[in-house]
Design a protein around this nucleic acid. Structure first.
Length: 300
DNA sequence: CGTTCAACCTGGGCGC
DNA sequence: TGCGCCCAGGTTGAAC
Protein backbone atom coordinates (compact mmCIF):
# COMPACT_ATOMS: atom_id res chain seq x y z
CA UNK A 1 0.00 0.00 0.00
CA UNK A 2 2.02 2.86 1.17
CA UNK A 3 4.33 4.43 -1.32
CA UNK A 4 6.11 7.74 -0.88
CA UNK A 5 3.01 9.99 -0.73
CA UNK A 6 1.22 7.76 1.76
CA UNK A 7 4.28 7.36 3.97
CA UNK A 8 5.00 11.09 3.85
CA UNK A 9 1.40 11.70 4.88
CA UNK A 10 1.84 9.30 7.81
CA UNK A 11 4.99 11.11 8.82
CA UNK A 12 3.27 14.48 8.79
CA UNK A 13 0.23 13.02 10.48
CA UNK A 14 2.20 11.81 13.48
CA UNK A 15 4.60 14.79 13.64
CA UNK A 16 2.94 16.10 16.80
CA UNK A 17 4.11 13.11 18.85
CA UNK A 18 7.63 14.55 18.76
CA UNK A 19 8.70 15.34 22.28
CA UNK A 20 6.21 13.00 23.90
CA UNK A 21 7.19 10.46 26.51
CA UNK A 22 6.33 6.80 26.04
CA UNK A 23 4.42 5.61 29.11
CA UNK A 24 4.18 2.05 27.91
CA UNK A 25 4.64 -0.05 24.80
CA UNK A 26 2.61 -3.08 23.76
CA UNK A 27 2.96 -5.51 20.88
CA UNK A 28 -0.43 -7.23 20.95
CA UNK A 29 0.21 -9.70 18.16
CA UNK A 30 3.22 -11.13 19.90
CA UNK A 31 3.30 -14.88 19.67
CA UNK A 32 1.26 -15.18 16.50
CA UNK A 33 2.91 -12.45 14.56
CA UNK A 34 4.55 -12.82 11.22
CA UNK A 35 5.59 -9.19 11.30
CA UNK A 36 9.23 -8.89 12.09
CA UNK A 37 10.17 -6.94 15.18
CA UNK A 38 13.80 -6.32 16.15
CA UNK A 39 14.75 -6.72 18.89
CA UNK A 40 12.09 -9.04 20.27
CA UNK A 41 8.84 -7.43 21.43
CA UNK A 42 9.60 -7.93 25.11
CA UNK A 43 13.03 -6.33 24.88
CA UNK A 44 11.75 -3.56 22.65
CA UNK A 45 8.89 -2.80 25.02
CA UNK A 46 11.36 -2.46 27.89
CA UNK A 47 13.67 -0.18 25.90
CA UNK A 48 10.86 2.06 24.71
CA UNK A 49 9.09 2.46 28.03
CA UNK A 50 10.01 5.81 29.53
CA UNK A 51 11.83 6.96 26.41
CA UNK A 52 11.18 10.22 24.57
CA UNK A 53 10.09 10.48 20.96
CA UNK A 54 12.25 12.79 18.90
CA UNK A 55 12.27 13.91 15.30
CA UNK A 56 10.38 11.96 12.67
CA UNK A 57 11.91 11.37 9.28
CA UNK A 58 11.01 9.54 6.12
CA UNK A 59 13.39 7.44 4.09
CA UNK A 60 11.70 6.34 0.90
CA UNK A 61 8.75 4.24 2.06
CA UNK A 62 9.90 4.04 5.69
CA UNK A 63 9.41 6.23 8.73
CA UNK A 64 12.13 6.68 11.35
CA UNK A 65 11.21 8.05 14.77
CA UNK A 66 14.00 9.35 16.97
CA UNK A 67 14.20 7.71 20.42
CA UNK A 68 16.14 9.02 23.39
CA UNK A 69 16.26 7.40 26.76
CA UNK A 70 18.37 7.35 29.89
CA UNK A 71 18.56 3.60 29.47
CA UNK A 72 20.19 4.04 26.09
CA UNK A 73 23.73 5.40 25.79
CA UNK A 74 23.03 7.03 22.44
CA UNK A 75 19.95 8.07 20.47
CA UNK A 76 18.18 5.36 18.54
CA UNK A 77 15.74 5.21 15.70
CA UNK A 78 12.50 3.27 15.58
CA UNK A 79 12.36 2.36 11.91
CA UNK A 80 8.92 1.36 10.65
CA UNK A 81 8.38 -0.16 7.24
CA UNK A 82 4.65 -0.44 6.46
CA UNK A 83 5.06 -2.65 3.35
CA UNK A 84 1.66 -3.57 1.95
CA UNK A 85 -0.90 -2.76 4.63
CA UNK A 86 0.89 -1.04 7.49
CA UNK A 87 -0.50 2.19 8.93
CA UNK A 88 0.82 4.60 11.53
CA UNK A 89 -2.15 5.99 13.40
CA UNK A 90 -2.96 8.48 16.13
CA UNK A 91 -6.68 7.72 15.69
CA UNK A 92 -8.64 4.49 16.10
CA UNK A 93 -7.44 1.64 13.86
CA UNK A 94 -9.63 0.13 11.09
CA UNK A 95 -10.08 -2.88 13.35
CA UNK A 96 -8.90 -3.78 16.82
CA UNK A 97 -7.41 -6.87 15.25
CA UNK A 98 -4.01 -6.42 13.65
CA UNK A 99 -2.72 -3.72 15.97
CA UNK A 100 0.99 -4.61 15.98
CA UNK A 101 2.38 -1.88 18.21
CA UNK A 102 0.72 0.46 20.66
CA UNK A 103 2.62 3.25 22.39
CA UNK A 104 0.83 5.01 25.24
CA UNK A 105 2.03 8.60 25.28
CA UNK A 106 2.17 11.22 27.99
CA UNK A 107 0.28 13.66 25.81
CA UNK A 108 -3.30 14.81 26.34
CA UNK A 109 -3.90 15.67 22.70
CA UNK A 110 -2.46 12.40 21.36
CA UNK A 111 -2.78 9.62 23.92
CA UNK A 112 -1.28 6.91 21.73
CA UNK A 113 0.57 6.02 18.59
CA UNK A 114 -0.35 2.78 16.79
CA UNK A 115 1.12 0.63 14.09
CA UNK A 116 -1.68 -1.38 12.49
CA UNK A 117 -0.94 -3.92 9.79
CA UNK A 118 -3.56 -6.27 8.39
CA UNK A 119 -1.27 -8.54 6.42
CA UNK A 120 1.58 -8.38 8.85
CA UNK A 121 4.33 -7.96 6.27
CA UNK A 122 5.56 -4.76 7.86
CA UNK A 123 8.66 -4.47 10.04
CA UNK A 124 9.63 -2.58 13.18
CA UNK A 125 13.29 -2.17 14.09
CA UNK A 126 15.12 -0.23 16.78
CA UNK A 127 18.43 0.83 15.32
CA UNK A 128 21.40 2.95 16.26
CA UNK A 129 22.74 5.55 13.85
CA UNK A 130 24.93 3.01 12.09
CA UNK A 131 22.04 0.61 11.73
CA UNK A 132 19.85 3.31 10.26
CA UNK A 133 22.59 4.19 7.83
CA UNK A 134 22.87 0.55 6.81
CA UNK A 135 19.13 0.25 6.29
CA UNK A 136 18.38 3.59 4.69
CA UNK A 137 21.69 5.06 3.54
CA UNK A 138 22.73 5.72 -0.03
CA UNK A 139 23.77 2.11 -0.55
CA UNK A 140 20.13 1.08 -0.10
CA UNK A 141 18.13 4.09 -1.22
CA UNK A 142 18.62 6.46 -4.13
CA UNK A 143 17.57 10.11 -4.12
CA UNK A 144 14.08 10.76 -2.83
CA UNK A 145 11.33 10.77 -5.46
CA UNK A 146 10.18 14.26 -4.44
CA UNK A 147 13.53 15.73 -5.46
CA UNK A 148 14.74 13.30 -8.11
CA UNK A 149 16.35 14.96 -11.12
CA UNK A 150 17.06 13.75 -14.62
CA UNK A 151 20.87 13.47 -14.36
CA UNK A 152 20.57 11.31 -11.22
CA UNK A 153 17.98 9.09 -12.84
CA UNK A 154 19.92 8.74 -16.06
CA UNK A 155 23.15 8.07 -14.19
CA UNK A 156 21.58 5.24 -12.20
CA UNK A 157 19.34 3.68 -14.83
CA UNK A 158 20.48 4.96 -18.19
CA UNK A 159 22.62 1.93 -18.98
CA UNK A 160 20.14 -0.67 -17.80
CA UNK A 161 18.38 -3.06 -20.12
CA UNK A 162 15.46 -3.34 -17.72
CA UNK A 163 12.03 -2.06 -18.66
CA UNK A 164 11.71 1.48 -17.37
CA UNK A 165 8.63 0.70 -15.25
CA UNK A 166 10.42 -2.12 -13.45
CA UNK A 167 13.50 0.05 -12.99
CA UNK A 168 11.50 2.88 -11.38
CA UNK A 169 10.54 0.46 -8.61
CA UNK A 170 14.23 -0.07 -7.77
CA UNK A 171 14.66 1.80 -4.48
CA UNK A 172 18.41 2.11 -5.00
CA UNK A 173 17.77 4.16 -8.11
CA UNK A 174 15.06 6.42 -6.72
CA UNK A 175 13.42 6.08 -3.32
CA UNK A 176 9.70 5.97 -2.74
CA UNK A 177 8.12 5.07 -6.07
CA UNK A 178 5.86 2.01 -5.95
CA UNK A 179 3.49 0.23 -8.28
CA UNK A 180 0.75 2.85 -8.40
CA UNK A 181 2.90 5.89 -8.95
CA UNK A 182 5.25 4.18 -11.42
CA UNK A 183 2.33 3.74 -13.82
CA UNK A 184 1.01 7.24 -13.20
CA UNK A 185 4.42 8.84 -13.69
CA UNK A 186 5.10 7.09 -16.98
CA UNK A 187 1.68 7.98 -18.30
CA UNK A 188 2.27 11.63 -17.59
CA UNK A 189 5.71 11.45 -19.12
CA UNK A 190 4.30 9.74 -22.22
CA UNK A 191 6.73 6.83 -21.96
CA UNK A 192 5.77 3.22 -22.67
CA UNK A 193 6.39 1.10 -19.55
CA UNK A 194 8.23 -1.63 -21.46
CA UNK A 195 10.81 0.69 -22.95
CA UNK A 196 14.30 -0.52 -22.02
CA UNK A 197 16.07 2.14 -19.95
CA UNK A 198 19.02 2.18 -22.31
CA UNK A 199 16.76 3.26 -25.16
CA UNK A 200 15.69 6.42 -23.36
CA UNK A 201 17.36 9.69 -24.28
CA UNK A 202 18.14 12.58 -21.99
CA UNK A 203 14.92 14.29 -22.98
CA UNK A 204 12.89 11.27 -21.87
CA UNK A 205 14.67 11.12 -18.51
CA UNK A 206 13.88 14.79 -18.02
CA UNK A 207 10.23 14.04 -18.71
CA UNK A 208 10.21 11.15 -16.26
CA UNK A 209 11.99 13.07 -13.49
CA UNK A 210 9.67 16.04 -13.89
CA UNK A 211 6.59 13.83 -13.95
CA UNK A 212 7.83 11.95 -10.87
CA UNK A 213 8.30 15.13 -8.83
CA UNK A 214 4.97 16.55 -9.92
CA UNK A 215 2.90 13.40 -9.44
CA UNK A 216 4.44 12.60 -6.05
CA UNK A 217 4.14 16.18 -4.81
CA UNK A 218 0.51 16.37 -5.91
CA UNK A 219 -0.22 13.07 -4.22
CA UNK A 220 1.45 14.24 -1.01
CA UNK A 221 -0.67 17.39 -1.12
CA UNK A 222 -3.80 15.21 -1.27
CA UNK A 223 -2.46 12.85 1.41
CA UNK A 224 -2.00 9.82 -0.78
CA UNK A 225 -4.27 7.38 -2.61
CA UNK A 226 -7.03 5.30 -1.00
CA UNK A 227 -8.30 2.82 -3.54
CA UNK A 228 -9.92 -0.57 -3.72
CA UNK A 229 -10.52 -1.85 -0.24
CA UNK A 230 -9.70 1.60 1.08
CA UNK A 231 -7.10 0.18 3.42
CA UNK A 232 -4.92 3.23 3.35
CA UNK A 233 -5.89 5.91 5.84
CA UNK A 234 -4.13 9.01 7.06
CA UNK A 235 -2.80 8.99 10.63
CA UNK A 236 -6.05 10.54 11.82
CA UNK A 237 -8.12 8.03 9.88
CA UNK A 238 -9.19 9.82 6.75
CA UNK A 239 -9.00 8.65 3.17
CA UNK A 240 -6.40 10.12 0.89
CA UNK A 241 -7.59 12.13 -2.09
CA UNK A 242 -5.19 11.45 -4.92
CA UNK A 243 -7.03 8.42 -6.30
CA UNK A 244 -9.41 10.85 -7.99
CA UNK A 245 -6.51 11.99 -10.12
CA UNK A 246 -5.24 8.59 -11.19
CA UNK A 247 -5.16 8.48 -14.97
CA UNK A 248 -4.30 4.84 -15.56
CA UNK A 249 -3.79 2.82 -12.37
CA UNK A 250 -6.57 0.29 -11.99
CA UNK A 251 -8.42 1.79 -14.96
CA UNK A 252 -7.82 -0.88 -17.60
CA UNK A 253 -10.73 -1.29 -19.96
CA UNK A 254 -11.90 2.26 -19.50
CA UNK A 255 -11.03 5.21 -21.63
CA UNK A 256 -7.96 7.34 -21.24
CA UNK A 257 -8.67 11.06 -21.46
CA UNK A 258 -7.37 10.78 -25.06
CA UNK A 259 -10.12 8.30 -25.87
CA UNK A 260 -7.96 5.20 -26.26
CA UNK A 261 -8.53 2.16 -24.06
CA UNK A 262 -6.25 1.80 -21.07
CA UNK A 263 -4.40 -1.50 -20.97
CA UNK A 264 -3.11 -3.73 -18.18
CA UNK A 265 0.02 -5.82 -18.57
CA UNK A 266 2.17 -7.75 -16.11
CA UNK A 267 5.82 -6.85 -15.56
CA UNK A 268 7.95 -8.53 -12.93
CA UNK A 269 4.82 -10.23 -11.53
CA UNK A 270 3.08 -6.92 -10.99
CA UNK A 271 0.33 -5.07 -12.83
CA UNK A 272 1.25 -2.15 -15.03
CA UNK A 273 -1.35 0.19 -16.51
CA UNK A 274 -0.79 2.42 -19.51
CA UNK A 275 -2.41 4.10 -22.49
CA UNK A 276 -1.10 2.72 -25.78
CA UNK A 277 -1.90 5.99 -27.49
CA UNK A 278 -0.39 8.44 -24.97
CA UNK A 279 2.54 6.09 -24.33
CA UNK A 280 3.45 4.72 -27.74
CA UNK A 281 5.92 1.91 -27.96
CA UNK A 282 9.26 3.39 -28.82
CA UNK A 283 10.27 0.38 -30.86
CA UNK A 284 9.31 0.73 -34.51
CA UNK A 285 6.54 -1.77 -34.51
CA UNK A 286 2.87 -1.29 -34.98
CA UNK A 287 -0.33 -3.16 -35.47
CA UNK A 288 -1.77 -3.27 -38.95
CA UNK A 289 -5.42 -2.73 -39.71
CA UNK A 290 -5.79 -6.52 -39.84
CA UNK A 291 -4.35 -6.82 -36.36
CA UNK A 292 -1.13 -8.48 -37.41
CA UNK A 293 2.13 -7.36 -35.92
CA UNK A 294 4.28 -5.55 -38.41
CA UNK A 295 7.85 -4.55 -38.06
CA UNK A 296 9.11 -1.45 -39.62
CA UNK A 297 12.71 -0.59 -40.30
CA UNK A 298 13.67 2.69 -38.82
CA UNK A 299 15.39 3.69 -42.06
CA UNK A 300 13.32 6.10 -44.03
C1' DC B 1 23.82 -8.32 -14.51
C1' DG B 2 18.78 -9.49 -15.10
C1' DT B 3 14.77 -12.02 -14.73
C1' DT B 4 11.66 -15.29 -12.43
C1' DC B 5 9.77 -17.34 -8.69
C1' DA B 6 8.53 -18.16 -4.04
C1' DA B 7 7.82 -16.57 0.42
C1' DC B 8 6.10 -13.67 4.00
C1' DC B 9 0.40 -12.81 5.40
C1' DT B 10 -4.87 -11.45 5.53
C1' DG B 11 -9.07 -10.77 3.36
C1' DG B 12 -12.17 -9.41 -0.49
C1' DG B 13 -14.20 -10.88 -4.78
C1' DC B 14 -15.30 -14.22 -8.09
C1' DG B 15 -16.91 -18.63 -10.34
C1' DC B 16 -18.86 -22.99 -9.49
C1' DT C 1 -23.22 -21.36 1.97
C1' DG C 2 -18.99 -23.03 1.02
C1' DC C 3 -14.81 -23.99 -1.44
C1' DG C 4 -11.05 -22.98 -4.25
C1' DC C 5 -8.75 -19.70 -6.74
C1' DC C 6 -7.02 -15.08 -7.95
C1' DC C 7 -5.91 -10.54 -6.64
C1' DA C 8 -3.68 -6.60 -3.81
C1' DG C 9 0.10 -0.49 -2.57
C1' DG C 10 6.45 -4.20 -0.83
C1' DT C 11 10.76 -6.51 -0.02
C1' DT C 12 14.06 -10.22 0.04
C1' DG C 13 16.69 -14.09 -1.32
C1' DA C 14 17.42 -18.20 -4.12
C1' DA C 15 17.78 -20.21 -8.59
C1' DC C 16 18.77 -19.90 -13.28
Amino acid sequence: MPELPEVESMRRGIAAVSGARILSAQFPMEGCRPLSITPSPSILARQLTGAMLGGIERFGKRVAIGITSQQLPEPRWLLIEPRMTGLLLVADPPSTKHVRMQLELGLCSIPRLLFWDQRGLGTIRLLDAAGLERACGPAKLGPDGLVINAPDLQLRLGGSRRAVKVALLDQRAVAGIGNIYASEILHRAGIHPQTPCQDLRTEAWQGIATAARRVLAAAVRLEGSSIGDELYRTADNRKGGYQRFHRVYGLHGSQCRCGAEIRRIVQAQRSTFFCPSCQPSRSPRRISSRGRLESRDKKA
